[in-house]
């Protein structure tokens, strides 16, 4: 079953979504996540994708949109421990290097973007 969790950690917003990241859910996810981010001023957003079982092209579009949206607001998005399904899909479309991917919490760079 899909779940979406938000946490405010020391200096960053942690978002975790479990389930399939597909056309069926991205519009609702977009609204919920952007509403949450609008209410919080943390400059780093960490999106935990470790429990994404499948991601389709709409999921890819959603991640890029989220990344671009944050960048324009001077915020930084990190993809945290993306599952193999996410990594494979991002590799196939040659977008894996487009994102900041982190495997450990200490690798999250909290320095503000200039």
């Amino acid at each position: 079953m899909e779940t979406l969790d938000f946490k405010i950690k020391d200096g960053y917003c942690l978002i975790k979504y479990r389930g399939e990241l597909t056309l069926d859910v991205v519009e609702d996810l977009k609204t919920e996540i952007l509403n949450f981010l609008n209410e919080h001023n943390e400059k780093s957003i960490v999106f935990d994708l470790s429990e994404i079982s499948f991601m389709d092209s709409s999921g890819i579009g959603f991640l890029v949109h989220l990344n671009n949206k944050n960048r324009t607001q001077n915020k930084k998005l990190f993809l945290f421990r993306p599952s193999d399904a996410v990594k494979k899909t991002l590799s196939l479309v040659n977008l894996i290097n487009f994102f900041d991917i982190v495997e450990e919490e200490e690798d999250i760079d909290l320095r503000e973007i200039l």
Binding site: I60, V64, L92, V93, N94, L95
Partner: peptide, 25 residues
């Protein structure tokens, strides 16, 4: 190939070569 699935090039010995994405979507 801009972010598309790898093209599959096949030779007469039936070996396949993947033409993966060199560019993004």
């Amino acid at each position: 190939n801009a972010g598309h699935c790898p093209g599959i090039l096949v030779d007469y010995n039936n070996f396949i070569e993947l033409l993966g994405a060199d560019f993004s979507v």
